[in-house]
Write a protein that binds this DNA or RNA. Structure first.
Length: 668
DNA sequence: TGCCGAGGCCTTTTT
DNA sequence: GGCCTCGGCA
């Protein structure tokens, strides 16, 4: 087999060579983890283990894709039978085949947070309960905790039990599942149908879990069910990079893993190949302040201490953005870097906005990952809702979204009649509309009935269209845009603002969306391009996965940066209350430790240069607040830091005045 | 009965 | 800056 050799140090080699039995790899930041994991898979294949027996689970789609690419690269072979997937996508794959055991049809919809919330709202309306938006959100979190076993019913919360039941019934009626279900339902299958479990245990004899510190106990349980027969399970993680505890990740599952597999071998990868000595020293000093961690000491052969971490304290977020942009230009001039070598990291999505505006204004090409994804845009969600209803007419949440978008003259009253009918007949809204249209003495006006009839015909015709020969999905999608006259809808929508451009921009997004579908269905690796599969896939994709975005500055949240690295990193908004986030500080000491890990992750993304900025003042929602530097900065040894006077560099008074004018609300 | 504009509210991190 | 709600108007 033509294989590309990867240089390995002794620990890495041991990790790659240990194929049989349970294995825990503690892989520090920048320790060549991805190389080890992919080499290990390649090594398995070299030992004659069939691709089909290997299951590699990662945390994000990005990581999954990267892993697959790397394995292809090393082995030089196609990996069509290798399963590399996220936990959630793997759950979907199981459910698509086996959901009928649990009473779901295979065309089920997957609800994201928003859809789920809408469903919960519907359920509460049905029970004549009214909640504030925030309360509803809290309830959604609580129900998630209940579903995933993180919390139990007790006498402080069982007043919500009936709503929970109602919510579950709705989801089932809509033939819809949520993200939690993608883990809990496969577990339910495995525990109730031994044959199914047996099938998966026999199929996946070699299992690998990446980013183990970010998996939940439930996800661990899920995978343990499959792995326990043969015990060939390798978990790779770093407790110092555990940053998802708020969504159920719990590095105690490392302890659980050790308990379940007493013969476990453990390998620590502590040599860092990524960052300069300075950056590594700073990172080590910061993380040493955490109490609850596995002892490890990252080291590097790089001992260059001339270079320092630069700290800047601009007046406000505009100056901050300007500083970063000036530095990028400077680095390009002096160090001959490309835009793609730069990462700008922030704690919250809202901080992306400023940076984005500034990058845009300065014509610097950039990509944002995380934040509002392409698929969350209103116009895209509308179209996705159409597609969902076309594939799964019982999906009430999405039906409600589109039944009057674009306008069909349906108002509150008409909708109420539909909802009432569905309750009477205990059927979905779609079926309720159906019987209303067919019925004679309806409470609805003939015009309205006509409109509904047309709506049903539209959905039906597209259902047939999409089902007959699963080809040319993209063209059918474009036809759909025309059939519902979404362009007319957009024009009308933006008529008030007299903004033809805005409408155009939205419609261009739809064209991008259909192009994306086209590329997907034409991909030769894609053996089964159906609409349902595509919908499932994009629900599990947060970032819009454009082609290679080399040559663009990478702007993202720290969470989204995990697993990535950049030559030059700008860490913006390093202020008290942002990192550590005020809400985390308020919550508990453990949460502060998690914020510190987050800071640690951010620092260790940098290979060569790290710039940290914190503003003196920052505009939030409506007012300007004074800012205090993050306490984490004091944990970095002084000699590693260099404070840069930024001042009003290069700006004349005139320019400063212009900027002040431009920032006034009436000029926005 | 449906539509549209004004005002109030909110922003941690993601599959 | 964007989304939801509510109230007045056609």
């Amino acid at each position: 087999m033509a294989s590309k050799k990867v240089q390995l140090n002794p620990e890495q080699k041991r990790a790659v060579d240990t194929i049989e039995g349970p294995l825990l790899i503690i892989a520090g930041a920048g320790s060549g983890k991805t190389g080890v994991v992919t080499s290990r898979i390649a090594n398995m294949l070299n030992h004659g283990i069939p691709q089909a027996s290997i299951l590699a689970l990662t945390f994000t789609n990005k990581a999954a894709r990267e892993m697959e690419e790397r394995v292809k690269e090393i082995t030089g072979s196609k990996c069509s039978n290798l399963t590399v997937s996220t936990f959630h996508a793997f759950g979907v794959q199981i459910l698509r085949r086996k959901s009928h055991y649990l009473g779901y049809r295979p065309n089920f919809s997957i609800y994201d947070q928003n859809d789920q919330l809408t469903c919960l709202k519907e359920a509460s309306r049905e029970l004549k309960l009214t909640y504030e938006f925030q309360e509803l959100k809290d309830l959604a979190f609580f129900f998630s905790d209940i579903k995933t076993g993180r919390r139990e019913w007790d006498n402080t919360n069982d007043q919500h039990k009936s709503l929970y039941q109602e919510f579950l019934e709705h989801m089932k009626l809509y033939n819809a599942v949520d993200f939690d279900d993608l883990i809990t339902l496969p577990i339910e299958l495995f525990e109730n149908f031994p044959d199914i479990l047996d099938e998966y245990q026999e199929r996946y004899r070699y299992i690998m879990v990446d980013e183990f510190q970010d998996t939940s106990l439930l996800q661990y349980h899920f995978i343990h069910l499959i792995a326990r027969r043969y015990g060939n399970i390798c978990c790779v993680g770093d407790d110092d990079q555990s940053i998802y505890s708020w969504r159920g990740a719990n590095y105690n599952n490392i302890r659980q893993f050790e308990a379940d597999y007493p013969h476990l071998q453990e390998i620590k990868l502590e040599r860092n190949y990524r960052s300069t000595g300075t950056i590594l020293e700073a990172a080590n000093a910061v993380i040493a302040n955490n109490t609850n961690r596995k002892e490890k000491a990252l080291w590097t052969e790089d001992s260059d201490h001339d270079r320092t971490i630069k700290i800047v304290n601009p007046d406000d977020e505009r100056m901050e953005a300007d500083f970063i942009i000036d530095r990028i230009h400077e680095l390009r001039a002096t160090d001959n870097i490309t835009f793609g070598d730069v990462g700008i990291l922030v704690r919250t999505n809202s901080l992306c906005k400023n940076m984005e505006d500034a990058l845009l204004a300065n014509n610097i090409p950039y990509t944002v990952s995380g934040g509002q994804s392409f698929f969350q845009r209103k116009e895209i969600k509308d179209i996705i809702a159409y597609l969902r209803v076309i594939t799964n007419p019982d999906d009430d949440v999405n039906l409600l979204r589109i039944v009057n978008t674009p306008r069909r003259g349906l108002g509150k009253k008409a909708l109420q009649v539909i909802v009432d009918t569905s309750q009477h007949l205990s059927c979905s809204l779609y079926n309720a509309i159906h019987s209303l249209v067919q019925g004679q003495n309806s409470a609805l006006r003939p015009n309205t009935l006509n409109d509904l009839q047309e709506f049903l015909e539209l959905i039906e015709s597209y259902r047939e269209l999409f089902e007959e020969g699963q080809t040319d999905l993209a063209q059918k999608l474009r036809d759909l845009y025309d059939s519902i006259d979404y362009w007319g809808h957009l024009v009308q929508e933006f008529a008030a603002t007299a903004n033809e451009k805005a409408a155009k921009y939205r419609f261009d997004n739809l064209l991008l969306f259909s192009d994306f579908l086209e590329r997907w269905e034409r991909n030769p690796d894609n053996l089964e391009p159906t609409l349902v599969k595509w919908l499932n896939r994009i629900t599990l994709t947060t970032k819009d996965e454009g082609e290679s975005d080399q040559g663009k500055v990478n702007l993202m949240t720290i969470h989204a940066s995990k697993g990535l690295e950049f030559d030059h990193v700008f860490l913006a908004g390093v202020e008290d209350g942002i990192i550590p986030h005020a809400r985390s500080v308020a919550e508990s000491k453990d949460m502060v430790e998690e914020e510190r890990r987050l800071f640690y992750v951010a620092i260790t993304r940098a290979r060569k240069k790290l710039f940290i900025t914190h503003c003196q003042t920052r505009r939030t929602m409506n007012d300007t607040v004074e800012c205090v530097p993050s306490p984490f900065l004091e944990e970095i040894p002084k000699e590693l830091l260099e404070h840069i006077e930024e001042g009003n560099y290069n700006l004349s008074e005139e320019e400063t005045a212009d900027r002040a004018m431009a920032s006034m609300p009436w000029n926005k």
